[in-house]
Design a protein around this nucleic acid. Sequence first.
DNA 1: AAACCATCCAACCGCCCAAAT
DNA 2: AATTTGGGCGGTTGGATGGTT
Length: 326
Amino acid sequence: MGRIPCCEKDSVKRGQWTPEEDNKLASYIAQHGTRNWRLIPKNAGLQRCGKSCRLRWTNYLRPDLKHGEFSEAEEQTIMRLHAVLGNRWSIIAAQLPGRTDNDVKNYWNTKLKKKLSGMGIDPVTHKPFSHLMAEIATALPPPHVAHLAEAALGCFKDEMLHLLTKKRVDFQLQRSNAPPGTSTSTCLTTKSDGKEDTVEKIRLGLSRAILEPDTLPLSKPWEPMGAPAAKFIGSCSGFPSSASEFQYAHSGFGNEGDDGSPWNTSMCTGSTCTAGDQQGRLDGIIEEENGEESKGEKDLGSGSSIFNSDCVLWDLPADDLMNPIM
DNA sequence: AAACCATCCAACCGCCCAAAT
DNA sequence: AATTTGGGCGGTTGGATGGTT
């Protein structure tokens, strides 16, 4: 009954691959292809599980893989697709020739997630943190809004301070290398003063977001530069000004005749997209998500979608937000 | 120079679904 | 029809490396 086991779990080698193992696997696949992963390690003379061989091949040895840095264009593609698809790495990777899902996932986790957070944008929803806060605030009675603001400060203060003070130190280093006479007025605060300053700015930004929710676009977080979202971020002193320069704005979303929605942006325009079936899946998913988005807009319009009974925010139950971690 | 810390990323883990038996 | 595996996928881990204290 069933199939025979893929390998003897006890007798297989694990951990880093050696160059000899890579050579054996690559030359075997060059000759025989990748039809049966269970037989490949055995026939290639490798003490490895078939699954391990498959991963090594697909993530590292395949000759069509790129191994260098991600380009600016690739980075923009990942950001745009992630905003639509979430963590569906294989589909995102299919739009980036030579990149694997593992590559894209690693790049997202190590670089892009932090980059977005540092810009005041939630990497899960791709909305500005201030926008999220204001959405929630509109659904809460005033006393709860105050608790929410405190909770948010508790959640983000440390990370923001880390990012901002680190940047400040970098600026100071640059300043020490700058030629004499260079203006340095924007970075002359001391480190401790800077922290106090930053906390105050975050506090002001959140207050403004909560007190002036009407200035926020509730249904189009994808607005290009000059549209309400970017305008709001730019006017919000609590977050890094670089947030207003968020790349969505000049990566195809703000084209003439475009309403700024990512749905209007070709996900694969002029690309060397090779995975036809994945593209089909992508189209289907985009249509599906598009439908969801419409529903979401309706819900937002009624002001009730954010705090549904089982709603969680940043992996915290809504109740936890009432208990600041400060 | 050594200890500590942060970052990167290859590799593994566990789950799911379709296919094989 | 029931059971088991192969392959695909996303999440997580841990070793290597480089920078900082």
